[in-house]
Design a binder for these strands. Structure first.
Lengths: 84, 84
DNA sequence: TTTACATATAGCACACGTGCTATAAATATT
DNA sequence: AATATTTATAGCACGTGTGCTATATGTAAA
């Protein structure tokens, strides 16, 4: 039979934006005096995940970011106060 | 054999934050005069995905949001200028 | 150096974000 | 009303975010 053509799908992965966010998260976490471990425990987000975000290895969801923001007591405009 | 205990894993899904973001995205898109279709075409993000985000059915990644922000010409502090 | 703490990396399984297509529903325009 | 436009919904396949566990690498303190 005729093999069906599979259309290519390009996924969004904004490397530069993720790098900028990683740096910002690390900075704010330090400013607020959290270790990755503390932030993980208090937020309920796994520590490996926080490390992956801060090293820009993954593309986190906004739910994850909202929870981290609440835990650190930082507003979204503050957390996203950087250029992409 | 003994059935292995599978630990439960609770995933993060911040319903209220996603709802707030959905409303904000819709507002800014309208202010900037984009239809979902235009925003989809210009950003390269599928229209079904934009609809899903604006109806808070899914939990988008920050890459997706960064791309939408760039396309609409809005800064991140503006786009995230709301309460969670 | 040894010990303790902090951060990064790796591999796995599962849940889900995303693109695609098609269709339905809602809203405007004539 | 009829037509067009815009938005929402649904189902599928694929890629990947996330939690978990374990290990490695830094880094600071004793």
């Amino acid at each position: 039979m005729k093999t069906r053509r599979i259309p290519e799908r390009k996924l969004i992965f904004d490397q530069s934006g993720l790098g900028a966010f990683a740096a910002q998260l690390k900075k704010i976490r330090h400013d607020r005096g959290f270790t990755q471990s503390q932030l993980a425990f208090e937020s309920g987000i796994s520590m490996s995940q926080i490390a992956r975000i801060e090293t820009a290895r993954i593309n986190p969801t906004i739910s994850t970011i909202f929870v981290l923001a609440r835990t650190m007591g930082v507003t979204l405009p503050e957390l996203f106060n950087f250029q992409i």
